[in-house]
Structures are given as structure tokens and as C-alpha cells.
Design a protein around this nucleic acid. Structure first.
Lengths: 349, 349
DNA sequence: CTAGATAATTGGAACGTTCCAAAGTTGTCA
DNA sequence: TGACAACTTTGGAACGTTCCAATTATCTAG
């Protein structure tokens, strides 16, 4: 059934016009007469025509494909799922469609998917680079004039735009808040030390300690996988220290949740016996128990902004690298043991 | 820089052969001499050639595009994020690339994205249909010979394959387990009543009650949005009943987490004062506190299976609708108050 | 040395669209 | 009536690939 593809020529024949006219109608050109346009559209509906973007794209190699690529390093992390949703929103309503791929932190896989996306002629790429991505990996892409926006993580030396959250300010605020509550042994838990994000967050932590005239103890910085399991592992190690910390700033929310789990396993009550602050403000942070005090970065909004930036560059034809640092704010909830104002939680129900 | 696209003709010139030969090399044809192949490959690397799938696809309209589409109704639900990851795995290693779109339960948006995907010539589609999707919506797709696999939800009357979990058996097991622990007022909480999945799970719940000679009380079935917030709302209403339930089977894990939150807000301890069972076994179920007893459906595995089924159909050229019911098992953790075996939790750390 | 087979290569047509330059239609005004 | 503008429409070339039939080069056997 319907095996034969119906083309612009078929509908031209049906409407009694030339294929050129049909093409003009498809592009909503103002040059075509209203009556003709109606006839053509009728034929299109009649025959169930579907536009062949591949063919169109072949002719107009510049205007491009209406595809944007998005590759993330860990889609199972809800931060990235939210990010993808944000991107999808703006991209979709601009008439684009998104290729989404997950690299699972593998540079090899990342290379493959980016190559594949290029073959399909993406108009632009939003990339949260896998660990270990180098500027050279992105070189051919930008050389061919495809706009790239890095999100979350930057790639040193790459001439591409980036949209990252203000990591330094985030942990800085978190530490100041904890210090203000009277904590002076504050740990920094979780994250891989070989990423720029880790260093920025760590530096914010260190600088804040200095600013508050607190000592910086190396033993209180414990790295681990940036996941729930990693959080458990990190707090386990922290609790073995001769002088235990009384509070922790965590690399991200996933780690923070793990830290809470680990504390409970030791019969410690997060928010009461130990203060915990996360980073990202994933959706579960509001409803978890205790509700997580965290640095809000609004992943969905970040996705939207990244997509807007990318579309701007695509439309501009050519756009130069632009580095946006998206600001960040501390959302005080319960896990840090601050004045427990129940109103926020209840209003969310 | 590099504005001019390098084509098969450029590399033919560079390698001193004809474009046809280059084409054969690209397709790894055995007809071409080893030495020639080497020369051509060298030129390809040299000039930084990138294959134009659009053009290729234009010529061989049958063999198709190496794109598969996946559209889900709620990507922020980690169940679907996991599902997408599963699909991505097998699809990627088969040399395909995935279009991922999120409908947010909007049939309009779903119509748009499917239309857009068709224009791009997807070879197949994996679809978790938005609420209210009708067989007519899928008609043109299947008429044009594009294989479709529905996941999670079915569409009545649509001649497409489907892969759903055994919803009836799942809630049936859950209720039996709770009854075995001595509960006799067991609620069914959450979910939209206008979906087939809801009815299947509800029916499993009802049948199990009957099988265990327990009364079925209509008031104990409380529907709500299938989200964390919906779970909170549902348990709120359940606790207002004259005769409160002592246990609940929830529509899915998100609802179950919400139910736990709501219980705590009433100073009830989930797992101790009230038994909660979820459905899906999302990744957080293992590490939450209390660890969630739930029906495991392995979303990632489901994604993989769906992708395999779809690829099979694509390769077979034509495949008839096949309905797979994927089996399901109860994973007993802590939230149902059963013998609290700590080993499972600890082994996960 | 030649006929026939086998291996390797090739030019041109085709895929479905867009763009361009050109050609028809009208209508207006001197 | 003729010239000119404004509005519509149109054939054909191009885009980058694959496929087919045809060609050339190489080998084998008689």
C-alpha cells in the first residue's frame, strides 16, 4: 500500500501547475496567487504528500537541515534529562528537530555520534562534553562552520560558545551560608577532580573559607563519582576522619542525596546532625525529605538558553564564540539545618 | 574557512579515479582493488570528506536513512530517560542515530514531531503515545510502510507492534504480598484513569483482592497525576477517609515517592506505619530512604528490546504487528515493611 | 595466439527538491 | 495603441550520491 512516494511533481500534475509553483507554495512565498495556493494545498492534502527535507537540503546547502544535535554525557542524570527537555522546547517551536545522543562519558562514543550527526547535516550542536574531550575533537566541526554551544562543561582552547553556571559563586555562597550557621569544619564532597567544573566549585569553596577566616583542610576535600553512590562513598570516608566535619558542600545534588543516605546508615539525621548542601537544584530536591538546600541552576532554563544562543548563531550565519556564565542562587531548604521554614515545602504540595 | 563542501568528486579527482569507484569504496564493496581502496581512503582523510547521507538517501529511497525516531510523553520522568538510553544503546551500535522528542502529553505536539520526523525520512519509530492518541493518528505512518513500535502504552486499534509490561501481573503480585503481610485495607493510588495502563494495573489490584478474599472498596482507589506531586495529593485524600488504609499500591514509583513525602508530612513513617509499593523500579528506588519496594520493569532493558524489535522489522523490510508483554517481578525492599533485610541496600553501596 | 572468463573501473541517468532567468499575464497611462 | 510596470508562472540546471550497463585490463585454457 502506498509504496510509491508522492513527489512535488505528482502534486503539480494534480493541481495543474508546474513543480516550481508547488515549490513556491511549500515555501509560503508571497509571489503565488491565492487561488493557486489553495488548489495546490488541496492537492497536497489529497495525495498525502510528505515533504522530503533530504532533497531540499541537497539543493540549498547553506540554509541547512533544520536539525540540531544535542549530546550529553549522562542522560540518566535528571539534570541532563531536564536540560534536553529545555532544548527540545525552543528548538521544536523554531521548527527544528533534535538529534539526542548519550555518550556515557566515553570520548570514543562521542566522536562516533558527532561524526554521524555531521553526516546527517546538523545545523548546530549543543554539547555537554564527555570527560577528556579536547579542543582537537571539536576542530573539524567548527572548521566546517557548524555552530557549537558547549553547556555545563567547557573545553579548554576550543573556539566555541559556552554556557556554564557560575560554579565559583555557587559554592562560595553555600560555604558562607554554612559558616554563618556556625559551622567551621565544612567538607567538599564528590566529583571527578579532572574536570574544570570540579575545580571551579572547589575554588569557590576554598575562597569562601578564606574569606570567612576559616582554615582550609585538604583532608576535607573528598572526590568521588558525581552520583548517588559516589556520595555515599564520600561521606563514609569523611566520617572516618579523626576530626569529623559537621557540614558538607556537595559537588551536585546526586552526591548530596547519597550523602544523606550515608548519614542515615550511620544513624545521623541530615539537616539535624549534619548540614548538607547540593548543587543543581534538580526537580527532586524540592520534594525530598529532608528538602535539599542547594544551588539552583535551573537545568531546563539552561537548555532553553543554550538553544536560543545556538539558533541565534545559526541564523546569523556565522557567530563568534561567546561565553555566558549563568548566575546561580542558593535555595535554602531543610538539609542545611537553617531556620526550618515549613512554608516552602507546604506551598509545593 | 572550509566553506566549500568536499564531495565525492573532489576526492575522486584527488585519488585519480572516478566518482563511481569512490562510491564503491564508501560502501565497502568487495569489487574494488585493495590498492585503489587505500588511495581513496587516503584522499578521504586528506581532504576531510564527510559523507552526505541526505544525497545518498535521495537515490536509494528504499534502503532508508539510518535514523530512528523516539518520542516519549514525559522525558522528565526518569523512567523515560532510562528508556531512551536503552534505545540509544542498541540503535547507536547498529549505526543508526536517534531523533528524540518529548511531547509532554500533548497530542498536538506529538502530531507535529511525528510529521517532522517523517519529513526527515526516519526508518522507524518508537513511540510512547501521549494520552488521547488514536489509531487514526498513526494511520498515515504505517500506511507509508514505516515500522512503529509502541512502548509502555498501547493504542487501541492501531496495527503496530507494542512492547508493554505485564501491568496486571505486577499489581497482582504487589497486593498478594501486602495481603500476606496482614494488610486488608490496601489502597490503589495515582494515575490517570483514562489510560489503558491505569486500567490494567487497577484490574490486577482488584483481581488480587478478590483472590485473597478481601473486599474491594471503591473509596480506596484514588487517581491523580502520575507524578510525585500527584502522589502527595492522593495520600492526603486517603488519610481523610473514615477508615484509613494501612498500605498502598501506587501507580508508579514517582507516585510512591510522593506518597512517602505525604506520609512524613503527617508524621507517619513509610515502611513502619504504612506500607508503600511502587511500579517501574526507577534507578532511585534502590537508594531512596526507605528503599522502595516496587515492581521492576527495567526501563533500560525495555528500551533495548524495543529498539531490537524495531530494527528487526526495519531489516525484514516489512513486519507485522507483534505484541510483546514483558514480564515483571516484585522487588521487596523496605517501604512495604516486610522483613527488612539490610543486605540488599548495603550491597548496592 | 585467441576466445572466453574474471576482475576492476567508469560515464551517465536518476532521486526530489530549489533557484535562476526568462516568459506570460494583466493593468495603467500617455 | 503602444510602452511599461507589476504580478504570476515556468522550464531547466544544479545539489551529492547510487545504480546500471558498458568498457577496459588481466588472466586462463585450448
Amino acid at each position: 500500500m502506498g509504496k510509491e512516494r508522492v513527489t512535488v511533481i505528482d502534486i503539480a500534475r494534480a493541481a495543474g501547475v508546474s513543480k516550481s509553483t508547488v515549490s513556491l507554495v511549500l515555501q509560503a512565498s508571497p509571489l503565488v496567487n491565492e487561488a493557486t495556493r489553495a488548489k495546490v494545498n488541496a492537492a497536497i492534502r489529497e495525495l498525502g504528500y510528505v515533504y522530503n527535507r533530504g532533497a531540499a537540503n541537497l539543493r540549498q546547502s547553506n540554509a541547512k537541515s533544520k536539525i540540531i544535535g544535542i549530546v550529553v554525557n549522562d542522560l540518566t542524570n535528571s539534570f541532563f534529562a531536564e536540560l534536553a527537555v529545555g532544548v527540545d522546547m525552543v528548538v521544536q517551536s523554531a521548527g527544528y528537530v533534535q538529534f539526542l545522543a548519550n555518550t556515557g562519558e566515553s570520548v570514543d562514543r562521542q566522536r562516533e555520534v558527532i561524526a554521524s550527526m555531521r553526516e546527517h547535516g546538523i545545523s548546530g550542536l549543543i554539547l555537554s562534553p564527555a570527560r577528556g574531550t579536547e579542543a582537537a575533537d571539536l576542530k573539524p566541526l567548527v572548521a566546517s562552520g557548524i555552530p557549537v554551544v558547549n553547556v555545563v562543561r567547557q573545553v579548554a582552547g576550543a573556539k566555541v560558545s559556552s554556557l556554564v553556571s557560575d560554579n565559583h559563586a555557587g559554592t562560595h555562597q553555600a560555604v558562607r551560608h554554612l559558616a554563618g550557621l556556625g559551622h567551621h569544619r565544612i567538607a567538599f564532597l564528590g566529583g571527578f577532580p579532572d574536570t574544570a567544573v570540579f575545580h571551579e566549585r572547589l575554588q569557590g569553596y576554598r575562597d569562601a573559607l578564606s574569606d570567612m577566616d576559616l582554615a582550609v583542610h585538604g583532608e576535607l576535600v573528598i572526590s568521588s563519582a558525581p552520583s548517588r553512590a559516589g556520595g555515599v562513598a564520600a561521606i563514609e570516608r569523611a566520617l572516618l576522619l579523626r576530626e569529623r566535619p559537621t557540614a558538607a558542600v556537595c559537588f551536585n545534588d546526586a552526591v548530596a542525596f547519597g550523602v544523606c543516605d550515608g548519614l542515615r546508615a550511620h544513624r545521623l539525621d541530615p539537616g539535624e546532625d549534619f548540614a548538607v548542601i547540593g548543587f543543581d537544584d534538580v526537580i527532586e530536591a524540592q520534594t525530598a525529605v529532608p528538602a535539599l538546600t542547594t544551588i539552583s541552576v535551573d537545568p531546563q532554563g539552561m537548555g532553553r538558553r543554550a538553544a536560543q544562543l545556538l539558533l541565534k548563531q545559526i541564523n546569523a550565519g556565522r557567530a563568534d564564540a561567546e561565553a555566558i556564565v549563568s548566575s546561580v542562587r542558593l535555595v535554602v531548604r531543610q538539609s542545611c539545618g537553617a531556620a526550618t521554614d515549613k512554608r516552602e515545602r507546604l506551598s509545593l504540595l
